[in-house]
Structure formats: structure tokens, C-alpha cells
């Protein structure tokens, strides 16, 4: 017998977990949990409902967290991100998909989560028993608060990022970048040099020790392209570099390059955009 924990009856990853549970053979029972997210309390409710059955869950953030608590409460080994089960032999997907691990589970009872998209979601109509966990003394999520971005697009989520480096020259120099960003519905970023100089806050910094961005377009203005900066913007689908120094290493990483003074080029792009938008 296998008990499968669902985040919701229609949840894609949860239905993939049902497929994993079915692959173990034997009957499959499904449960969901009601109420605020409280991983340890949810786990206790699942442990109660499972009796002596194997327990399977989705390989989502919540699924992995809840089943880790389940395993700890039962003092059993936990195998997360499982892609295949053959008896007590398992294949697990590790290190962001770069590694397949062959492992043996040293326990009579299995506690597993299904690696996302390693299984085809079950099409069986699922009846799930709804559990009500005991929240007395439990740590539970009471509210989610999104960081205040002052109404602007956040750097991490922006589709377009306009970023400035030493070449911008001053805090005031960012006005033309702000202007371009507003036209593109973009966020403004900067390099380490800029935050060190105090022109922009650290929250705007893109790079190894700042925010990692992956926009559709990254516009690097007056940024030389040090490895530390590239580490933060290498996820961009396209990189447009504007720099007066034709030797700047940023051009080695750029899809589009403009060699010239950003103080002329950025306003020119903004003017052209305004023309196109017809304002």
C-alpha cells in the first residue's frame, strides 16, 4: 500500500507523484492537507494517516519539505527527486539535473518524492482524503509579503534590464538610464563599481555578489564586463553592450554592440522609441 500526498488534486506535480506511487505496485491512497502551510504539522497528519504504508509526494518545494519532516518523524531515510524505482534500487536526479544518482534504500518503508517531469501525470480521477493537521504549537505560514519595489518592476523579474557601470560617471548620470527603462518597462541595474561609489543602492547591483538576472534583453551601458559582473547577467537571452572602449571585455559576451559614448547613445535610443510609440 502507498499513501500519496497531493498539494492539490489538480496539481501537475502532485499527479506526477501519483504515477510514481502507482509504479510501486499495490493500492494507492491520496491525501491532501487543509489550512495554512505548516510543514511539521502537515507531516504529523500524514504520518498518522499512512499507518505502515510507503509515502510518496511531489518533488515541489512544499512536497520535499513536508516529506523531509515525515522521514525525520519516522526516523526513515528520505529519497527526494526520484525518477525511477526498481525494488530497493532508485535513480535520483541531483545537482540541478547535472547528475543521475543510483542509490539503494536501506529501509523496509519508502519515503519518496517524484522528480518534477520525470513521470507522466496520472489521468485517473483522484479522490483525496482531506487531512486536518493539529496546528497547536506548530510553525505555520500566516502571510506572504512581497518586497516593496516602489511600484517598479523588480530587477529579478524584469523582462528588460538597463544597467550602468563606471562609464555612467555619476549618480545623476543614471537619469538617462531611468528614462530609457521607463520607456521599456524595464528595471535599472548597475555594476559593483557603481554601488561602491555610492551612486546606486546595493539592491540594484547585478553580479556575482548582487542579483542574478535573466531578462530577455540586458542593456549594459558603460560596463567593462568583469567576470564578477557577467556572472550576474549571463542568464540574459540577449545582451546589448554600449561602451566607448572597443577593447572592453563586455563585447565578447554581447549579442549586439554599440561602440560609443553612452551619454549620446542612450538618449538617442529613448528618442527613437518615443517616435515609434508616437508620443
Amino acid at each position: 500500500m502507498t499513501l500519496v500526498f497531493l498539494e492539490g488534486v489538480d496539481d501537475e506535480l502532485s499527479r506526477q507523484a501519483v504515477t510514481l506511487a502507482e509504479s510501486l505496485g499495490g493500492d494507492v491512497r491520496a491525501v491532501t492537507v487543509d489550512g495554512p502551510f505548516a510543514p511539521a504539522a502537515w507531516a504529523a497528519a500524514i504520518v498518522d494517516a499512512a499507518g505502515g504504508d510507503d509515502i510518496v509526494g511531489p518533488g515541489s518545494d512544499r512536497g520535499n519539505e513536508v516529506l523531509a519532516h515525515v522521514a525525520a518523524q519516522l526516523d526513515l531515510p528520505f529519497a527526494a527527486n526520484v525518477s525511477e524505482v526498481r525494488g530497493d534500487q532508485l535513480t535520483r536526479i541531483r545537482w540541478g539535473g547535472t547528475l543521475l544518482e543510483e542509490a539503494r534504500l536501506h529501509a523496509d518503508r519508502k519515503v519518496l518524492t517524484a522528480a518534477p517531469f520525470a513521470f507522466v501525470a496520472s489521468v485517473d480521477s483522484t479522490q483525496a482524503q482531506v487531512l486536518a493537521p493539529n496546528l497547536d504549537g506548530a510553525v505555520a505560514v500566516v502571510d506572504h509579503i512581497a518586497p516593496d519595489t516602489g511600484g517598479k518592476v523588480s530587477l529579478a523579474d524584469a523582462k528588460v534590464v538597463v544597467s550602468g557601470g563606471r562609464g555612467v560617471g555619476s549618480a545623476e548620470g543614471f537619469a538617462i538610464l531611468e528614462d530609457l527603462a521607463a520607456l521599456l518597462d524595464a528595471a535599472v541595474g548597475c555594476s559593483r563599481v557603481v554601488t561602491s561609489a555610492g551612486w546606486r543602492p546595493h539592491s540594484d547591483q547585478v553580479g556575482q555578489t548582487g542579483t542574478k538576472v535573466s531578462p530577455d534583453l540586458y542593456i549594459a551601458c558603460g560596463i567593462s564586463g568583469a567576470t564578477q559582473h557577467i556572472a550576474g547577467c549571463k542568464g540574459a537571452k540577449a545582451l546589448l553592450a554600449i561602451n566607448a572602449d572597443r577593447e572592453a571585455t563586455i563585447f565578447a559576451h554581447a549579442d549586439y554592440a554599440v561602440i560609443g559614448d553612452l551619454h549620446e547613445i542612450v538618449p538617442a535610443i529613448a528618442a527613437e522609441l518615443r517616435k515609434v510609440k508616437g508620443s
Binding site: 545537482w95 547535472t98 556575482q208 555578489t209 548582487g210 567576470t227 564578477q228 557577467i230 556572472a231
Partner: peptide, 18 residues
């Protein structure tokens, strides 16, 4: 917090810049 990506990249891809 800013050192987290270095630690993760060393662990996963074998160099500190990912």
C-alpha cells in the same frame, strides 16, 4: 548571502562563477 552562489556553483559545476 552574497557568497551563496559561489558555494553553490563550486559544488554543482566545479568553478566559483558557475
Amino acid at each position: 548571502a552574497e557568497a551563496e552562489s559561489m558555494l553553490r556553483d563550486v559544488e554543482r559545476v566545479g568553478n566559483p562563477w558557475g
